[in-house]
């Protein structure tokens, strides 16, 4: 009855651990670094990435059994949910924070990323266009898969993508 929240693993005889995990806590530990990175690509800054990952994971975790029951790969499911949440919920926030307060201390490397023209141009894209670009080049999804993930038509994906690429080209040409 209490299995859902347990960290579940077993230990083989002979010492080597055959640790295999089916619970949400372990999924979070395993997937956090990758999801934060992905969130960074989606949102354009590490603060929003952490917020986005946390809020999506908490929602998914609250329905963990039914997410597993759907038979989807949970990691893929979380990533799609992040893209969607970013497009729908983060839109306003991101606009407000566009020239956002940036953590000066722990992120020197990221600050250098900030100076890359392509990164700057990406940050200025509207969230849905940016999501399409991230799904295409970060996740390697096809247009049909992107359309399914974002719940829009293939035509919308096409047009958002070409708008995004045109904007990026123009901005980089200027820079």
């Amino acid at each position: 009855m209490t299995a859902v929240l347990h960290a579940e693993w077993t230990v083989e005889r002979g010492g080597e651990r055959a640790e295999i995990v089916g619970d949400f806590a372990e999924f979070v530990r395993m997937s956090l670094p990758g999801l934060l990175r992905y969130g960074h690509a989606l949102t354009g800054n590490p603060h929003d990435a952490a917020d986005l990952v946390q809020s999506v994971l908490e929602k998914v975790g609250s329905r963990w059994q039914s997410v597993l029951g759907k038979g989807d790969e949970p990691l893929a499911y979380v990533r799609r949910a992040m893209a969607n949440t970013h497009v729908s919920v983060w839109r306003r926030r991101r606009k407000e924070n566009l020239v956002s307060d940036f953590p000066e201390t722990a992120f020197h490397d990221v600050n250098r990323l900030e100076h890359e023209p392509l990164w700057q141009a990406l940050r200025d894209l509207p969230p849905r266009q940016r999501a399409v670009v991230v799904l295409r080049f970060y996740e390697g999804l096809s247009e049909a898969e992107i359309a399914a993930a974002l719940g829009v038509s293939k035509g919308t994906v096409k047009s958002q993508n070409s708008k995004a690429m045109a904007t990026l080209r123009t901005k980089l040409g200027r820079d």
Partner: peptide, 19 residues
């Protein structure tokens, strides 16, 4: 440089939030 440091204890915070 896209990597984001994992805040210590955040995993437990998330599991608690989901709960």
């Amino acid at each position: 440089r896209l990597d984001v440091a994992v805040k210590p204890g955040i995993d437990e915070e998330i599991v608690g939030g989901a709960r």
